[in-house]
Structures are given as C-alpha cells and as structure tokens.
Design a protein around this nucleic acid. Structure first.
Length: 739
DNA sequence: GTGCGACGATTTTAG
DNA sequence: ATCGTCGCAC
C-alpha cells in the first residue's frame, strides 16, 4: 500500500492522530511514545496535505528548548526555513504580540520584561515603603500571591478581601505593585500572559484578526497549562479554530506552579475534541514499563493509559538499601564504574533525586573518584549577579525611570552613595511620584555637597554611557558599558577566584551579544531586543554540555529526558514522597506522578536506592523506605546486597564516614564544582597536563589536577590543593608547575 | 563602607 | 550543615 511519506514512519496510533481531520484534537501521549514526532508531523501534514499556509500555524511550548527542537524538526520535514512559523513559548509569543500591539495593550512602546528576581525586589521596596513588617509580609510570598492572581486572570478590582485583613493587605500590595509596573513600563512574566490575553479579549478586531490567521494551534505539554494560558488558547481557538493539543495527565508535576491538569478534561469537553492515545513506548524495557504502570495505577481520576512495548523482558530493577547517604553514593558510584568499564559513556547514567540538597553526597563521591559529572539547575547565565549588573547599566540608558535597575547599580561599584542618601531619594521619589532618576535633581540641592555630587556624578555617568553607545554595534555597546561603569575594574579587584569567573562571564556576555541575532524582534533596536532576550531566555545553567559526564538532576528537571541507566535515589518516606506530600492525601498523586516520570526516564537499567539513615539539616534521621517501593511489582525487583568488601561501619558507630583509605584525601573539602558559564570544553582536544598530575602553585602549594575545561586562554583547571582545598583556576594565569 | 557573627529557612522551577 | 540576609561594630 502506498503510504504518504509523512505517515510512513509512524505507528497506527500516531498516524491516526497526525492524519485526523482538522478540528479539535487531544492526544494523550504517554512517556516515550513519540509525542514530539506527532506534533511536528501534524504541522507538516497540515501544510502539505491541507494546504495550510505556514503563517496560519501557531505552535506553543513551555520551554525555549522544546520550541527550538520543534522548529528544527518541522524545518527538516518541510525542507523550508521555519522562520515563517510562529513557534515559541507561551511567554515568547505573548511578548511578540505585545510588541506588535503595545498601544492596544496600554503599554509604552519601550516596555521591558522584569524577571522574578526584579519583581521581588520591587515588591520588597513597596512593602518597606508601606512600613510593613517584612517578616509578616515576606516578599517571596507576596510575589507568589500576585503571580497566582495573574495566573488565574485576576486584577485587583476583581478581588474580594472576604473580610480577611491579610488578604486585603495582599490585594493592596498587588494594586500598588501594578501601579508601579505601569509607571515604569515593566511587565513581569505573569503579566505577559495576562496582558496578551486581555488585549485579544478586549480588542475585538485584534482577536478576530488572530483567530482568522491562526486556524491551527499546536500545544505541547498541555497538562502544564495554567488557567490564563488555557483561556488564551480558548480565545484564539473559538470560531472554528482547530487546536491540536498533546499532553500526559500522568506527567503533570507542576500544580504548585499553577498548572491545571484539569485543563485536559476541560479541553475535551469545551471543544468536543477527538481523543487519541499514544501508548506504545519506544524507550524502555517491558520490565521498566511494568513498574511505571504499576505505580501510576495507584492514582485515581486518570484519563487512562497504559504503556506497552513491542520488546519483551529487560533487566530486573535493582533496589539497594543503603546504610546512609554516603553508602548510597558509594553504591551508585560503583555501578557507574562498572558501566564505565563495560565501555558505556558516562552520559548514559543519570542520578535523579527529589531535592537539590541530595546532590552533595554524589558530587563528593564522584569528585573523589575523579569521574566527571554535570549538575543541572542552579543559576543560569543571565541570572548571574555580574550579568544583571552590566545589563542594569544598559537598562538605565534605555529607560532612566527603571528604578529597579537604578537601585541595583547606583552604588555599584561604590561611589559614595550611602543608605541614608538613598533613603531620602526614595522618600522624595515617592512623595513627588517621580522615578529615582528624576528625584536626584529634586533632592540634590538639599543634600550635603558630597552626596549631591555623588548622585549627580552617577547621572552624568549614565548620560556618558548613553551618549557613548549611540551608533555602536550591540557587543561594543555592552563592552563600553562594562568598562565605563567601572564594573570591570570592580570585579577585577574582587578576590581572585570569584572575580576571575565574573570577568569571564562579562566577557562571555559580550560574545553572546556578538552572536545575537533576534529572529522575531518586531523591529526593536538591537539593544532592546537583547535585553528582552536576556530576560526571556535566561540561558543554560551549566557549561560542559559537550563533555562526557554523569548527569545529576532533580526528578522535575529530568522530565522530557531519557537515559540508558537511571538511578532514582533517596526513596524514603518524608523525602520522596516529600514530608509535605506524605502528610497530605491531596498532594500524594502528584508525588506519585513524579515517581512515574522518574521511572519512565530509564531506557535499559533502573536502580532504586534508599538509605536507612540520612543526615538532613545537620541531623541524622531514620526513615522508612518509600511507599512507592512497595507499589512496584515485586517480581520485577532484585534486592542488591552490599558486597562484603564494602566497608560498613558498625551499628554502634553510625557516624563513621564510609571512605576508602586511598580516596580519603579526596573526599575532604566540598567545594561546589559548578563552574562559570564560559567554560566550554572542546572534546578531543588534549589537556596540557595529565589528569591526576601533581602540581605546585606559587600561592596554594601542592595539589593534584582534577580536570580541565575550556581551551586556549579561557582554559580552566580544577585542582585539589592539599592546603588550600579545591580551586578552579585560569590555566594560562595559574603558573602551575608540574612535579 | 566593609566585615563579621547571629539568625532563620531549607521540595520541586520555565519564562 | 549551609547558605543568604541583616544588623552592628570598626
């Protein structure tokens, strides 16, 4: 039978979904069932078979990574550049709409996006101005309240205090916060979505325009949509639009972030959608899938789905009861060594844990064994303090009224503008309803000459930078700001290790600007586009992606990934499920889904470990094995017993560290191995000294080389010094002498 | 303006 | 245990 080439590589269920008649479709896509493939083939199918113009398609994802992957795969399928396609994250697309229709949205043309950090700073400032107690009104929680309201589509006037004074105060702060954002032209992440929704809803001609333009909407990870995202889709998809949404209710793990898994059922009802199920799994062995199915079967109210695979069998799932967290790490380390010996790449192994704090024991063990590893999470590039400092200078040149940027750098590097002066400045600004920038001129005549000069000097500096960057290329603008602001010098003075890394990151910022090519800048000037990009795509957390290394991450960040060998560690009551979830029947299902997500990451081998005792917050606790272990099909499990050679402390001596004598020296100081963004390893390039080589440093003394990263002038070396502990150094500057 | 010690919190996190 | 924030002393 002649098959359409787009359908040929698909299985029956995938084919049915891809070739479904245009109209509302809900695809229930199990883990590893080829959902991205269905999404991309659907896009190509609509364009090639139904004559849909590429501009008539809107594809939405949650992460930039997913958007980029989808774009790439559709380009490949269609053989055309994907630039005509609207593919992006919810936030990216909302941003694009608001840039186009800033006037209708009631925004200044120069509006800027504010990240969560800046949002919290602003909220904190408002709390202080209102003379409220920060203990009673923690900025984090207040910000959380504001964002939750926005995620639900609620503006202050629609909110009722219900006679609750706490709520009344929160609503009041929300109101003040929004006023300030409006004054300053700031849009936070939740605001992007809400405004984009409102502009489509309240401007009928705009809504009609986009409804008729985007006849087809594709949505990935639909189970993660929040209320406003769903409302937004509904707004676009009524009047005969054809939303094609893909999701998995069993992988819904972000309720605490506003995700509404109910949106899946809601969608089915609202749109009378056709439902397709993708249940054939191409990733894992039958044993692993059996375990995953058994665990998730304990949840009620599922849409219903059971994964299966054409392949039979598979290795048993191995369970290890560790004595404590060090023993657990040793066990994992030994298994990784075995796999390494059998020629498997390290990157085939992932260690998944419930909370970030658990990574430590594994990092220490891996470091001691000199096995490269990579920890996901942590600060991302554009979130680093020095990067935000440099960008704040540039933001002020674009918008002097940006109080958050002003506060951030007015005295960085220090230029004699003290807390008292700033306090007066804030008071004047508030009183006159001015920006801090404008308040400088108001206040200066009343200040002592020194403070007045310092403040005027700051304004003059910003003015100089503003004039200086005019007409320059983007990366030159940034370089100039870093120099003229004094930031470079400031960081150069900082204690060598930190300062060096920061200088490098600033250098990397210039490089990032050099390579920056906005694809949907909506006519924004390059600098404005770059600033938006920096906020919207905060970049990779970790360098060293190219190096073969063991992967460490939380179960949450593992979603969407797969690994031949997976270790799920810390399977203990109170840890996984977490304390809070274990105590609350309403929160258990999500925790169980998280377990399901973890299990389904494994392709061939799955190890589950728990520890009888574990140090947490400095105290040793004893925990029962996780209930999830009991929910697994017992015939699929093999209990791994510790070998005799594993040194176990006596029961009477539970505190003794389990460290082999020959590795003891390595286990000592726990310096975080997280590295600067700019360290880009080039695989295959030789290292200037062998790993493990003994070296001497003029200041730190003798040590051993643990690893290298990067090359050329930016090559960094990680050395474990006997006296000074572990340090990352610039190889070209470190003057290491090999012994 | 800097540095140090006390204090408190500590699940998960994309844009 | 550890990390970030805050207040106070130099």
């Amino acid at each position: 039978m002649d098959q359409h080439p787009l359908l040929a590589p698909l299985n029956e269920a995938q084919r049915a979904a891809v070739a479904a008649a245009p109209g509302p479709v809900l695809v229930l896509a199990g883990a590893g069932s080829g959902k991205t493939r269905v999404l991309t083939h659907r896009a190509a199918w609509l364009i090639l078979e139904h004559g849909l113009a590429p501009q008539g398609l809107l594809a939405v994802t949650f992460t930039n990574k997913a958007a980029a992957e989808m774009r790439g795969r559709i380009e490949t399928l269609l053989g055309i550049p994907g630039s005509a396609l609207w593919i992006g994250t919810f936030h990216g697309i909302a941003h694009r709409l608001l840039r186009r229709h800033w006037r209708e949205a009631g925004l200044p043309q120069t509006f800027r996006i504010q990240d969560e950090d800046d949002q919290q700073r602003l909220v904190r400032r408002i709390i202080r101005e209102q003379q409220l107690d920060e203990q009673r009104w923690p900025p984090r929680e207040v910000t959380g309240f504001i964002n939750r309201q926005k995620d639900e589509g609620r503006r202050p006037p629609q909110l009722e205090d219900r006679g609750d004074p706490t709520r009344r105060q929160l609503i009041r702060i929300y109101e003040l916060y929004q006023q300030r954002c409006n004054q300053q032209g700031l849009v936070d992440f939740a605001e992007l979505l809400l405004r984009a929704f409102e502009v489509l809803r309240d401007q009928p001609q705009l809504g009609a325009h986009y409804r008729s333009r985007f006849r087809h909407l594709l949505v990935d990870e639909f189970q993660d949509t929040n209320t406003i995202q769903y409302q937004w889709l509904r707004l676009l998809a009524t009047d005969g639009g054809a939303p094609f949404v893909v999701g998995d209710d069993d992988q819904s793990i972000y309720r605490w972030r506003g995700a509404r898994v109910e949106n899946m059922q809601q969608f089915r009802r609202d749109f009378a959608a056709q439902v397709f199920r993708l249940e054939q799994n191409y990733r894992s062995t039958a044993v692993i899938l059996g375990a995953a199915n058994a665990v998730i079967a304990k949840n009620r109210d599922r849409m219903g789905k059971e994964l299966w695979t054409a392949a039979a069998g598979g290795e048993p799932i191995r369970v290890y009861a560790a004595f404590n967290e060090r023993d657990e790490a040793e066990f994992v380390l030994e298994r990784i060594r075995e796999h390494q010996r059998s020629g498997e790449p390290l990157a085939a192994c992932a260690i998944l844990y419930r909370s970030n704090a658990q990574s430590r024991a594994f990092e220490e063990a891996l470091m001691a064994a000199r096995i490269p590893y990579r920890v996901y999470g942590g600060l991302r590039f554009f979130e680093r303090a020095e990067i935000k400092d440099a960008l704040a200078y540039l933001r002020l040149t674009q918008a002097p009224a940006d109080d958050t940027a002003f506060e951030r750098i007015v005295n960085l590097p220090v230029r004699g503008i003290g807390a008292a002066t700033l306090e007066q400045l804030r008071a004047v600004a508030r009183q006159r309803e001015q920006s801090l920038w404008d308040a400088v001129e108001t206040l200066a005549p009343e200040l002592p000459a020194r403070a007045a000069n310092a403040l005027r000097g700051f304004r003059a500096l910003i003015a100089r930078i503003t004039a200086g960057i005019a007409g320059l290329e983007l990366h030159e603008q940034i370089r100039l700001a870093i120099e003229a602001s004094g930031l470079r010098e400031h960081y150069a003075r900082e204690k060598e290790n930190r300062g060096e890394a920061r200088l490098e990151n600033l250098e990397e910022l210039v490089s990032a600007a050099e390579g920056f090519a906005p694809d949907d800048d909506e006519g924004l000037p390059p600098l404005a586009a770059f600033l938006a990009h920096a906020t919207l795509e905060s970049g990779e957390a970790q360098a060293s992606a190219g190096l073969d290394s063991v992967q460490l991450m939380t179960l949450h960040s593992a979603k969407g990934l797969e690994f031949p060998t997976v270790f799920i560690v810390g399977l203990e009551e109170g840890l996984f499920p977490s304390e809070q979830a274990a105590a609350d029947a309403d929160r258990l299902p999500e925790e169980r889904r998280l377990c399901y997500v973890g299990i389904t990451r494994a392709m061939r081998r799955l190890y589950l470990t728990h520890a009888e005792s574990r140090r947490i917050y400095g105290r040793t606790g004893y925990r029962d094995p996780s209930r999830f272990l009991a929910e697994l099909p017992q015939q699929a499990l093999t209990e791994v017993r510790p070998r005799i050679s594993v040194s176990r402390p006596l029961a009477t001596d539970p505190g003794r560290p389990i460290v082999r004598p020959d590795t003891r020296a390595w286990a000592a100081p726990a310096v975080s191995p997280r590295r600067s963004h700019s360290a880009r390893p080039v695989p295959g390039e030789d290292t200037p000294m062998p790993l493990g080589a003994r070296v001497r440093h003029p200041k730190f003394g003798e040590g051993t080389i643990l690893r290298f990263e990067g090359n050329g002038d930016s090559r960094q070396v990680h050395v474990n010094f006997e006296r000074a502990g572990q340090k990352w150094l610039m190889f070209s500057l470190a003057r290491l002498e090999q012994l």
